[in-house]
Computed example of a mutant assay.
Amino acid sequence: MESLIMDMIEAFISLSYFGVLLALTFEFIPAEVILPLAGYWVYQGDMNLYLTILAGSIGGVTGPLTLYALGKFGGRPLVLKFGKYFLIKDKQLNKADYFFEKYGGGIAFFGRFVPGIRTAISLPCGILNMNVWKFILYTYLAMLPVTSVYVYLGYKLGPKWEQAGAVFSHYANFLLIPIALIVIWLFMKSRKQKANQ
């Protein structure tokens, strides 16, 4: 299995930025591995830091967009049938449903920062027919900082890029909580403005 993963990684590096985008779209290998590894490729001089972050952020949208489409065009029955192939369980979907119903479209952004629903949140967005352009925008804005941190960590750690996940986890609260708070504030402000109209 490890040999197969290494072969896939070699294939991705041969495709450069498109390889990063492709890997994240279909999630052959977790983003927590691909992004720091891409940062290491930047460290080696094979890629540009900013273009790698851009490719990673776009891939971070196209992957969730696949799940969004599954929810939109297949509905809940199809999601329950095929969700397991995307490593999504009923419990995650139910939790994502609850968050979407409670917070609306804004969850497409800050749901990306909540462990246990960050992947599954795309499904209720599709099932409940959220505007696709709003979904893309929220998802991109959420994935940009996460992608940037992972790629930068891989770049700075160089040959020790595999430690990026542990470093990210250690500092995640300091990095992501301020972002999430800003988003919640913007979301509440938006709801208040709508209520006053």
Rank of each mutant, 00 (worst) to 15 (best):
E101Y: 07
I121M: 15
Y155R: 10
G111F: 01
V114R: 12
T119Q: 09
A142R: 00
A108N: 11
L153N: 05
A120Y: 05
F86V: 10
F99T: 00
L137M: 02
A164G: 06
E101F: 07
S122N: 05
M143Q: 04
L123I: 13
A164I: 01
Y98T: 06
Y103S: 12
Y103E: 04
Q92S: 15
V151C: 02
D90E: 15
M130G: 07
N131L: 14
A108S: 15
F86I: 06
L153G: 13
L87F: 15
K134A: 13
I136L: 03
V146D: 03
I117R: 04
D90I: 08
N131E: 12
L137T: 13
F109M: 15
G154F: 02
P115W: 06
R112V: 00
Q163R: 14
I121Q: 11
V151G: 09
Q92K: 05
P124C: 02
F110H: 11
V167N: 07
P159I: 08
T119H: 08
K91C: 03
K134T: 10
Y138S: 06
G104A: 13
K102N: 09
S148L: 03
P124L: 01
K102Q: 02
I117Y: 08
T139M: 04
P145T: 01
T119S: 11
Y150I: 04
A108G: 02
A120S: 10
I136K: 14
R118W: 09
G158N: 07
G154T: 09
P145K: 01
K156P: 05
K156T: 15
K91W: 01
A164D: 07
F99E: 04
V114L: 14
F109R: 08
I88T: 15
K134Y: 10
F113T: 00
G106E: 04
V167H: 15
Y140K: 00
L93T: 02
K102W: 00
A108R: 03
F168G: 09
G154A: 09
L128D: 08
V146T: 02
F168E: 13
Y98K: 05
R118C: 12
G126N: 04
K134M: 09
L128H: 11
T139S: 07
C125S: 10
I136W: 09
A108P: 02
L93V: 12
K102L: 04
Y138R: 07
I127F: 04
P124I: 12
